[in-house]
Amino acid sequence: MKKSVIVFLLVFLLCACSSEKEKVIFPADNSTSLKPIMQKQDSIHGYKGVINEEDILVAIYINRFDRFNKTKIEKKISKQIEKKFPEKKVLVTGDQKIIWEVESIIDKKLKEEELRKSIEKIKSLSKEET
């Protein structure tokens, strides 16, 4: 009884860990310069980035057990991106809410003005403290 519960939980955990490998940058033509940076990160298993003239917004799927170091990982990646794009404001986050927001931007394929507005919205969201 006890063993079967543990086995069940382990299987459950492992299944959950290896799901969805999503690597998207929007709009796609900008993706070449950002991809190499994201590709070499080993503590994330996916990312969704949005780029416009002044902002870079990257939502990252952090591996389950790397989430302890969430803030460190966010800082590390955003520093690397800032190095490559010194003229843009960079926001890297593993927050589930912002992952959802970025996904909805990509799904709706927002253009210029609307895109700028939603990026502003997300930036103000991430600034809020508890």
Partner: peptide, 17 residues
């Protein structure tokens, strides 16, 4: 927490309250 994050403007940090 998921419910508040999905339907309201709360992030992981602020949804705890």
């Amino acid at each position: 927490t998921f419910f508040y994050m999905r339907f309201f403007p709360f992030t992981e940090g602020t949804a705890a309250n």
